[in-house]
Simulated scan of single mutants.
Amino acid sequence: MRQDVTQVTPVPPDPAGVAAIIQARLSELAGSGLRAVSLSLDFGPAWGSAQAGELEAWVDRRTRSLAFVRARLLASDGRMIAVGSGVFSLPAA
């Protein structure tokens, strides 16, 4: 199950800002009511030099209680700024 979504976004000058953009998009795709169980973020060669990027995000897989999502932020020349992934779960009853 793959849902591609692309949006152009300014790249914040600090790592925390990039992490916030990616985490917010991952959470949005995971769905309402799901909570992060695991989040991972890696920076690429365009980090620090790109002013804007294209944020692509998709759902890799979804079960009844888990969502596995990924996102990547690419510079206009295709170089990776950052890539993130997450596992989200329904809260315990």
Rank of each mutant, 00 (worst) to 15 (best):
residue 34 L to C: 09
residue 54 E to T: 07
residue 58 W to E: 04
residue 50 A to N: 04
residue 23 Q to G: 01
residue 55 L to E: 00
residue 8 V to C: 02
residue 14 D to Q: 10
residue 93 A to G: 13
residue 56 E to I: 04
residue 14 D to W: 07
residue 8 V to N: 09
residue 22 I to D: 01
residue 57 A to N: 06
residue 87 V to N: 11
residue 87 V to H: 05
residue 88 F to Q: 01
residue 12 P to S: 03
residue 48 G to H: 10
residue 6 T to N: 13
residue 62 R to V: 09
residue 43 F to I: 07
residue 74 L to A: 07
residue 22 I to E: 03
residue 87 V to A: 12
residue 48 G to I: 08
residue 25 R to W: 01
residue 93 A to E: 12
residue 68 F to N: 04
residue 74 L to Y: 10
residue 11 V to F: 02
residue 36 A to D: 03
residue 42 D to H: 12
residue 60 D to Y: 11
residue 91 P to D: 01
residue 30 A to K: 14
residue 5 V to T: 12
residue 10 P to C: 00
residue 11 V to W: 05
residue 13 P to Q: 08
residue 44 G to A: 08
residue 21 I to T: 04
residue 35 R to H: 12
residue 32 S to H: 12
residue 43 F to W: 11
residue 41 L to K: 06
residue 74 L to M: 12
residue 50 A to L: 06
residue 58 W to S: 13
residue 34 L to Q: 10
residue 23 Q to K: 02
residue 53 G to S: 04
residue 49 S to D: 07
residue 68 F to M: 10
residue 69 V to K: 07
residue 56 E to G: 08
residue 2 R to G: 05
residue 36 A to G: 13
residue 84 G to M: 10
residue 76 S to K: 09
residue 17 G to E: 10
residue 76 S to P: 10
residue 63 T to V: 09
residue 28 E to W: 08
residue 48 G to A: 08
residue 44 G to Y: 15
residue 24 A to E: 09
residue 69 V to G: 04
residue 36 A to R: 11
residue 70 R to Q: 11
residue 81 I to A: 14
residue 22 I to G: 00
residue 51 Q to V: 04
residue 55 L to C: 03
residue 18 V to Y: 01
residue 92 A to M: 13
residue 39 L to K: 04
residue 67 A to C: 10
residue 40 S to Y: 05
residue 10 P to M: 02
residue 3 Q to V: 06
residue 86 G to W: 07
residue 33 G to A: 12
residue 3 Q to I: 05
residue 88 F to W: 05
residue 6 T to F: 08
residue 24 A to G: 12
residue 83 V to E: 14
residue 26 L to A: 08
residue 70 R to I: 00
residue 19 A to W: 01
